[in-house]
């Protein structure tokens, strides 16, 4: 009851503007991630990548978008009609919702009024992100199932079991950080890591586990079992075409952006960098630093994709259940002992 009473007109307008800007930035970053992916992939393979649309090919995402929109929208005859249409939308929707709790900076001064650079300061921010990342799999599952194609179904089933397995290790690695910082709110977590006091120095193992799991949660290579071009012809989106396919691919890039942002916020100090006060430039320094970190992590995601070959399915399950989860539990115990001993 009390949370609803806090809403005032100015508050709502401020949040709507913030959400719109964030939404636009998210889509823009995702669009240019596709360009970046193709360009980086080319560079890693001694090629040049797309360079025809505009200088250095920077208009390539627009061309891709036009292509996606104008292609024939094909629907299999035996597909579950509504679910088939719903799935890409659900995937995209969940992907876009996650950015709400990430603190993009401290405060921005616009027209003399301070604006918090966070859409919602939930006191359970990190749990919100874990929850939504576990919901992301529904889009894949519904899409794969409703296509009425065995390869799609395989992709969907692989995606779901992979998500469930890696969520556990991810949650356990986050719990260690939560034990250390004593808060579930991402805003407080970022604020505690001022300067160079980043969580990754205290939780290197936790970071490693979290990062591997976020690769798996984003369905990125080497964990792209859900797509698996070579075995499953594209997995859950085999039967999708046109912008429905575009939504699936786009949402994956949004997921990558968000998980990079979460990694940067939880482990790498968020908007903090030694020597750079996040309040500089009227508060714009924070977002600049955070976005630099996010782009670095997106680069690492792509770097890994174009270096490491895909796991076999049983190797994936072994890694998840027999290595990462015990390691995460060990890390949790270690952190608990550390917190008890040092009284952090």
């Amino acid at each position: 009851m009390s949370i609803l009473l806090l809403f005032s007109a100015g508050f709502i307008v401020e949040k709507i503007i913030l959400i719109s800007v964030l939404f636009a930035i998210t889509l823009g970053v995702a669009a240019y991630s596709t360009y970046g992916e193709r360009k980086f992939a080319a560079f890693f393979q001694d090629r040049l990548g797309p360079d025809r649309a505009g200088p250095w090919g920077i208009l390539q995402p627009l061309a891709d978008g036009v292509k996606m929109f104008t292609k024939e929208d094909f629907r299999p005859n035996e597909a579950e009609r509504w679910l088939y249409i719903l799935a890409p939308g659900a995937f995209m929707f969940v992907a876009c919702m996650t950015s709400a709790v990430i603190p993009w900076g401290t405060q921005l001064t616009v027209f003399g009024t301070p604006v918090d650079l966070q859409v919602a300061d939930l006191n359970i921010g990190i749990l919100y992100i874990l929850g939504l990342s576990s919901l992301g799999v529904y889009g894949i599952m519904i899409g794969g199932w409703s296509s009425n194609n065995k390869f799609s179904l395989y992709g969907a089933i692989r995606a779901s079991s992979q998500m469930i397995s890696y969520e556990l290790a991810m949650g356990l690695s986050v719990i260690a950080v939560v034990m250390m910082t004593g808060t579930l709110s991402l805003k407080e977590m970022a604020a505690q890591q001022a300067g160079f006091n980043w969580n990754v120095w205290y939780q290197p193992l936790g970071f490693l586990i979290f990062f591997i799991c976020s690769l798996a949660e984003c369905n990125r290579a080497p964990f792209d079992m859900a797509e698996c071009e070579t075995e499953l012809i594209g997995g859950y989106h085999t039967e999708y075409s046109s912008m429905k396919l575009g939504f699936f691919l786009f949402a994956e890039y949004i997921n990558m952006f968000i998980s990079s942002a979460v990694t940067a916020t939880v482990f790498f100090g968020g908007y903090n960098f030694p020597g750079l006060d996040p309040n500089w430039l009227g508060g714009f320094m924070g977002p600049i630093v955070l976005f630099a970190k996010v782009f670095f992590f997106i680069f690492v995601f792509m770097w890994i994709r174009w270096t490491i070959p895909r796991f076999r399915y049983d190797q994936l399950m072994h890694l998840g259940w027999k290595s990462l989860i015990p390691l995460a539990i060990f890390n949790m115990l270690l952190t608990g002992a550390g917190v008890l001993y040092f009284g952090k």
Partner: peptide, 26 residues
């Protein structure tokens, strides 16, 4: 005002148990 319970409800029930249900049904 039980945000924690809400999120845990989503993580556990909607995010994990129902995924398993769907998984088995598929």
């Amino acid at each position: 005002n039980a945000q924690f319970l809400a999120v845990v409800h989503i993580i556990v029930y909607a995010g994990a148990i129902m995924v398993l249900f769907l998984f088995v049904l598929m």
